[in-house]
Design a protein around this nucleic acid. Structure first.
Lengths: 189, 189
DNA sequence: AAAAAAGTGTGATTTGGATCACACTGTTAT
DNA sequence: ATAACAGTGTGATCCAAATCACACTTTTTT
């Protein structure tokens, strides 16, 4: 739980009492490789803060094709946020690609913490602000760039992931076919 | 300014004193058609709340092609948020497509209001939450859908805009060429 | 250690949408 | 009222990336 405190305190300091209160809203969970944290059709009860491991947030279209919305690593939050915030059934999946641990928490917890502690509402606002900007960047990229530019940008943003996850998933994230992506770096180190 | 109060109170009620304080952070501005509120290269001092009119938030690539990131109408907030939050130079433009009025405010104001009034931090958090979910939806659409699906979705989300703005701008928003979009509804009412 | 499954590279073929080109219409400016 | 311009429809052509196909390699399972 110490990791949670460090994570929050990157944005706002907490007293010991405050953190003792905050911690009660989170539960630790170990996750095996290939395990699902959220499955399409389930009620979306939880959001997750990644302590370790790698996860993919994705959805599947009618034709059965997969599209990755987000990769999550240490200190990333993840859920099917549309479903989580609106308390609907999930339309996405979250699957573990590399075993690790997460903390999970409910919407009620997020709201209670925000209402009780101004600091926590601040924390969530700052996180959301960063997330909003990142998604907008991604939209700009999807609208305007070629596959090579997308791959270059991805390499810059997530150099660690390039090595650690199969290329086919990177293709699914970039919105490019596996084959096209493969040809992009044919003949690079 | 009454409109501002109504807007905020859709999320959280304010006392008269609180609102009198809040209002001091916003300034009214009339905007003519084709006027720019933000121009690439400028310092991004303000964010805007639309009271009336229609605006487009867009950027231009090296080849001079335009891509629309957002259309804004009544009660939408807009800025080059990446630049606004990070206090950088704008990489986007905001142009008025239909004359109207906006309220504007600075990053310092947003932060001061959030710090002073827990209610306002809550307001901004809720707004950001909705915005985050909307952007994620857009990413899902950009990743997985054909031009026709995008146009159908746009028509559903913004039926009013379809009539009021030139189709070429809708094409720029959807990431499709003007010509392709035109052919999609060739032979529909 | 063998078998099965998952991931990857690379050629051949197809295709959806971009681009180019131009005519027509509707709007704005003088 | 006429000129200039912005927006739109539609045909012809082109092309980048998707799709299809298959061999090779690496990882996982038993």
């Amino acid at each position: 739980m110490d990791r949670l405190r460090k994570h929050i305190e990157q944005i706002t300091p907490l007293t010991d009492e405050e953190f003792d209160y905050v911690r009660t809203f989170f539960t630790l969970k170990k996750v095996r490789k290939n395990q699902y944290l959220i499955h399409e059709g389930d009620d979306t009860k939880y959001e997750y803060l990644v302590l370790s491991g790698i996860y993919k947030v994705f959805f599947v279209d009618n034709a059965g094709k997969e599209y990755i919305v987000q990769f999550a690593q240490q200190n990333w939050w993840m859920s099917d946020y549309d479903a989580f915030f609106k308390e609907k059934e999930a339309t996405m999946f979250i699957e573990c690609m590399d075993a690790g641990e997460v903390l999970y928490s409910t919407l009620a917890s997020r709201e209670k913490l925000s209402a009780d502690l101004h600091k926590m509402e601040h924390f969530f606002r700052v996180k959301l602000t960063n997330g909003y900007v990142a998604l907008q960047q991604r939209i700009k990229l999807l609208l305007s760039s070629t596959p090579q530019q997308r791959y270059a940008e991805f390499s810059k943003l997530y150099p660690e992931l390039i090595e650690r996850i199969p290329k086919k998933f990177i293709a699914e994230y970039l919105g490019v076919s596996r084959e096209t992506l493969s040809r992009l770096y044919a003949g690079k180190s």
